[in-house]
């Protein structure tokens, strides 16, 4: 475990597109790759990423394409065009979620206060994602870096609640290591 200070970072909303389709259909996979540069991962809880874009596994026929560089409507319409004629769905939900990052030495301890997932490196590796509950709120957790850094996607409407909860959860580590919270 690194000695990095523990912090909560508010990252706001992010371009997010829900894609539904059949990953066994090569045309779907090719079209996705053409539109996003990424193939949808088929193993549960895995992600594919390239620079600041990523595809997160949500379910066997459902993915979340996220991007920190492209606006939602442009990405969504490019994907829609690429998937034309296939039984697939592309829905822009860029405004539906807000993102928080929990980073630093005690990031896992902070999350463990409200999330029953086992985030130990043996059970949850770099690049993995999982939908679960955090403080009774549905959350999508994505481990972005080994630092560790966990990104939490939560519904916009509960953003304030989650922020307040995270602030309380990180408090004991601020005393110890001088971390920060929003």
């Amino acid at each position: 475990m690194s000695g990095e200070r523990t912090a909560i970072v508010e990252r706001g909303s992010r371009t997010s597109i829900v894609v539904r389709g059949d990953a066994r259909d090569v045309r779907f996979v090719r079209a996705m790759a053409a539109a996003t540069g990424l193939e949808p991962p088929v193993a549960p809880g895995t992600t594919a990423h390239h620079l600041l874009d990523a595809v997160l596994w949500l379910g066997p026929d459902e993915w979340l394409v996220v991007s920190e560089t492209q606006p939602g409507h442009a990405l969504a319409s490019r994907m829609q065009q690429a998937l034309q004629g296939l039984h697939a769905a592309v829905i822009d939900v860029s405004d539906a979620r807000v993102v928080y990052a929990v980073t630093g030495a005690h990031a896992r301890d902070v999350l463990a206060k409200g999330c029953a997932l086992d985030l130990h490196p043996r059970a949850f590796s770099l690049g993995q994602c999982a939908s679960s509950l955090l403080a009774e709120v549905p959350v999508l957790i994505h481990q972005r870096s080994a630092e560790p850094c966990f990104e939490l996607y939560v519904a916009r409407s509960v953003g304030e609640y989650v922020r307040a909860w995270l602030r309380a959860a990180v408090r004991e580590h601020l005393h110890a290591s001088g971390g920060s919270s929003p």
Binding site: P44, G45, G59, A116, L117, A130, S132, L133
Partner: peptide, 10 residues
Amino acid sequence: PWCGPRDETE
């Protein structure tokens, strides 16, 4: 069958 073992609350 997809996500592996998880708590009943999910």
